[in-house]
Design a protein around this nucleic acid. Sequence first.
DNA 1: AGCACGCCGACT
DNA 2: GTCGGCGTGCTC
Length: 732
Amino acid sequence: MAFNDLLGPADTIASVLVPVAVPGAYTYRVPAGETVVPGTIVKVPLGSREVLGAVWDVEPDTGIDPKKLKYISRVYTHARPIDADLRRFVDWVANWTLAPPGMVLRMVLRSEEALEPEAPVAGVRWVSGRQPDRKTPARARVLDILGDGLAWTKTGLAHAAGVSASVIDGLLAQEVLEVIEMPAAPPPPQPQIDYSRVALTPAQQVAADGICGCFEKGPSVSLIDGVTGSGKTEVYFEAIAEALRRGKQALVLVPEIALTEQFLRRFEQRFGTYPAEWHSEITPKTRVRVWRGVANGEVRVVIGARSSLFLPFLDLGLIVVDEEHDTAFKQDDRVSYSARDMAVVRGHLSGFPVVLASATPSIESRVNADQGRYLRFLLPDRASGAALPDLQAIDMRVEGPERGRWIAPALLSAIRHVFAEGDQTLLFLNRRGYAPLTLCRTCGHRFQCPHCSAWLVEHRFQKRLVCHHCGHFEKVPDTCPSCSSKDTLAACGPGVERVAEEVADLFPQARTLVLSSDIQGGPDRLRREMKIVEEGGADIVIGTQLVAKGHNFPKMKLVGVIDADLGLAHGDPRAAEKTFQLLAQVTGRAGRVTGGGRGFLQTYAPDQPVIRALLSADRDAFYAAEIDARRAAGLPPFGRLVAIVVSGPDKGLAEAYARAVLRSAPPAQDLTILGPAEAALAMVRGRHRYRLLALAPRRFDLQAYIRAWLSAAPRPVKGLRLQVDVDPQHFL
DNA sequence: AGCACGCCGACT
DNA sequence: GTCGGCGTGCTC
């Protein structure tokens, strides 16, 4: 102690962001002989453990008692310090999302192992001239491979020679082979800019040229707005090629891992090699390799989930956000952020182009483009020349099926036709299970979730009633729990299982397949089934939104939407937008490759704007109508929508708190509370969440406002979480 | 008494 | 986010 005090005043101090939920950086002493700069990655003692952190400031002004300061326990000299751009990004995201900066930094430091210097690989080599005592065939094969004098890894050699590792061990024991240190793993193969260029359509060429022209101009956002099959990927591949040409790295964000496989193949066709992948499912080894490669610049292109935004790129020059409208870009737990919006921010901070691509852009991106903040490139036709599917509505009030059936006669005859031709049909219903509601015919009892207020959905295959909100499930009873009568429970409405039952009844000879997220057997099974559909091994597919994304189904000629109104009923202000996006994606599957596709939308309200927009393929009209509708409802079309999510065990407290935040201290009058919306009350793993929607004026600094409110709160608020959901365009 | 479990605050 | 402290309540 006395020793430390003596040395203390001479020590350098540094503020370090630690990966815990504290409001700011902590201060540590820098051990004598070590140098740190802003961004240096370090290990520091925190409480009873050691944690990773990063130096955020050197020699900060702090009022902390110097006696309290501990020493940085390790400086990662081999890892490149986090550069100024990424540090600014971390701070920006922390401020925007009201998250502690250390928690944002945690997303950067995702692989502790990657910070260690790369370990040399042990290899084996033939000691020239040496021969084994007996030359068995296995030994001969090994020596044959090693004949050129090059070193191999033990496992690699065993594999190549088709022998077990013990053969090599035997040769090592006789000192015919020797162990040497090989240089660490060679750099990954580089994408070749001109490996295989495809001819672009005129519209694609205009878009590609426009985006490539942005690289000179500093920050920019381009929206590629193209119908399904219009070749958005080819366009942004040209942007990637341009980034590579300029020696920059590129990042492609996709909403789900499921979409990467097809992307990897297409990338390989264009650039001759695979890009690096980054998402939660990659192996720890790959994680280390990619993190290092991104940091040292050997990895040129990454495709990844939202977390790849926080990778420490050496020189990032382009971000592409594919399917930009997809809500999977929003992270809801821990630091809650929208990866699409934060991609725009990262591009802005570092001064490079960002490309958003979608067949059904989000309203906010459309408005940003309309108002000139984004460039917009329209791809109105399919690149293959195939015609868009011919869509029509079926008015269920006048031409619906008989009671207890869900497929209308018009759709039915179309399925018959397509089936007879040997082509595929997709029946789309975004509802898992057999029936969304079960009731007792005698007393009218309805099965409801004991935790949420949602109806329990019958899953007949599993013989369960399941809450799709919180995951609660129970056995299907024989008798009504309310009136005890036997065999009086009636299933109301369809789920995919029930539609599949109807299909099996109507088309006993057809090969049918149900694709929904609750199929048993994990992601492998799902991949296999997708492949079956892709290769034409199923005639009629009944699927939930799982089938809306990614995969190409070349034989799919007909898409029937069983309930096009589903999802429009609730109080979600984005319901129409989401339904439009989902149904456009789903119906776009029909005839995507070959053309000649047809689609049917079963609806009880064929005149509503969503249906009309889908039928006329006039998307502009839909966007205009939707923007008007939001204005009329007092909602902004985009941009100033603020959702304050407060979570905690007590709904009443959460609501009161959310309202108080928005109403208390000035300038609260600048905010308009719109009331609870979008999942007003949900149960997420046993925790209630309450979401309050409000409007903030364009330049209103909501973050500063909420922080001020929190510090002025009469009593500390516990157990509650805040989340701000705003399009940041206006704030850049 | 001894310990499993859950809540709460501290962590530089 | 994670740990340790301390309270409650139950048992080999």
